Amino acid sequence: MSFASLGLSAPLIQAIEAHQYTQPSPIQESAIPAVLAGKDLLGVAQTGSGKTAAFVLPMLQLLQSKKAAKGRAVKMLVLVPTRELAMQIQDVLRGFGSRLPRQVRSLAVYGGVSINPQMMRLNGTDVLVATPGRLLDLIEHNAVQLSDVEMLVLDEADKMLNLGFQEEMNRIFGLLPRLRQTLLFSATVSGEVEALVANQLKEPVTVRIEEETSVPELINQVAYAVEAARKGPFLRYLLKQEDMQQVLVFASSIRTADNVVGKLIKHGIQAAALHGDKSQGARNDALIKFKAGKLRVLVATDLASRGIDIKFLPHVINYELPRSPKDYVHRIGRTGRAAAPGKAITFVAPEDAHHFKIIQKKMGKQVEIIATDTIDLHGL
């Protein structure tokens, strides 16, 4: 199936081709026609399934036939749990919208930065991408109106509920017109998500993409048995030995991420941490530099990494194992994209050996574990 067969316009097809996308993903195949037809939608899919384009593309097309927004009444609203995801969605909106006859104005708003610049840029915004708390702040300042919203997108709804946004979301729902199109995307469908669907969606089309537990063949996986105390020196050994120039390292805690970055910098290696305790300016700066290849190592926690989308990322390293097999697959899936090979490396401490066996069993794939006790890490 091609993108053209989904009912998208010629200018959008040209924008898609310019971004080197050749065929739609399963969720895009099902979601795009439903959204274009004005249907409410429940999309159950994991990160990396292509769901952002599944709502951005039809959203951009529908806006082509509408007058540009005026004042502070937005036409389309996207609610997200994190700042990084808000910025990622805005990048996708701008990327696909750049070649359209009618330019679509989009804006991402989130906490952690001054509200005044966001208030100043809101005038004439067609699509507002927002975290719930900052959106309510803007509403209280009379900087934005929701009375004209025609489409509401709830992206990663399960994450928003898990992060405690239920009360804020309910307040926002109360300000939205009842007659609107609502799209809800979630990786899981808990009781809270089911209640959200029942209360906010009308006869939705349901699209379920099975949880991805297999790993693309383009990803070369390797694991190293490393004592916890030797992980830092061994990481620096690998960076030097394999001449890695763009590496995404996953840590399970903010403290570990900061410690790893501190040691890397001390040894003359360009590195930055990406996590919730960093200021928004620092997070933006780190992401921009890393995507541009100007930062060698980015050490991220799982939640903060959700805005990272790099087509040709060559290396991912699990400095610590994630809690679940699906999180492992999501992590290493950051590499091996866009038909380009990638390498995923995992550090396995003795206490993690059993958990890593479970991850391999769920993946249905064995990963070679290489001993490192004979490697001399002195001075690293």
Rank of each mutant, 00 (worst) to 15 (best):
Asp277Phe: 05
Met244Gln: 14
Arg283Leu: 03
Glu203Met: 05
Lys294Thr: 07
Ile219Leu: 06
Val215Tyr: 01
Pro233Phe: 01
Leu295Cys: 07
Phe250Ala: 02
Lys289Pro: 02
Gly262Ala: 11
Lys294Asp: 12
Tyr237Gly: 12
Ala273Ser: 13
Arg255Cys: 12
Val207His: 00
Glu227Pro: 03
Arg230Asn: 11
Ala282Val: 09
Glu210Val: 03
Ala271Gln: 05
Ala292Asp: 14
Ile269Trp: 05
Gln200Gly: 05
Arg296Asp: 13
Ala282Pro: 05
Leu218Gly: 05
Lys263Tyr: 08
Ser252Gln: 14
Val205His: 10
Tyr237Thr: 10
Val249His: 00
Leu239Cys: 00
Gly262Phe: 03
Pro204Ile: 03
Asn220Pro: 07
Leu264Glu: 01
Val260Ile: 15
Leu264Trp: 00
Ala286Arg: 02
Lys291Ser: 11
Arg236Val: 01
Val222Tyr: 09
Ser253Cys: 11
Tyr224Val: 04
Lys240Val: 12
Glu242Asp: 15
Glu210Leu: 04
Gly262Gln: 09
Leu218Thr: 13
Asp258Thr: 14
Asp258Leu: 11
Gln270Leu: 15
Ile254Phe: 07
Ala223Tyr: 03
Ser214Met: 04
Ala228Ser: 14
Ala251Tyr: 01
Glu203Trp: 03
Lys263Cys: 08
Val260Cys: 12
Lys202Leu: 04
Lys240Arg: 15
Ile269Asn: 10
Glu203Asn: 08
Glu242Gly: 11
Gly276Thr: 02
Glu211Met: 03
Val260Asn: 06
Ala198Phe: 07
Leu239His: 00
Glu212Ser: 05
Gln221Pro: 03
Val249Pro: 00
Pro233Glu: 05
Asp243Phe: 00
Val261Tyr: 00
Ser214Cys: 03
Lys294Ile: 05
Ile269Arg: 07
Thr256Tyr: 11
Val222Glu: 14
Thr256Val: 14
Leu201Ala: 05
Lys202Gln: 08
Ala273His: 03
Ser214Glu: 06
Lys240Cys: 13
Ala225Tyr: 02
Glu227Ile: 07
Lys278Asn: 13
Lys240His: 14
Ala271Cys: 12
Pro216Asn: 10
Lys266Tyr: 08
Phe234Arg: 00
Val207Leu: 04
Arg255Met: 15
Arg296Ala: 11
Ala223His: 04
Leu235Ile: 04
Tyr237Ala: 15
Gln270Phe: 09
Glu210Ser: 08
Gly293Phe: 01
Gln200Phe: 06
Ser279His: 11
Leu274Tyr: 02
Lys231Leu: 02
Asp258Ile: 12
Pro233Ala: 07
Lys278His: 12
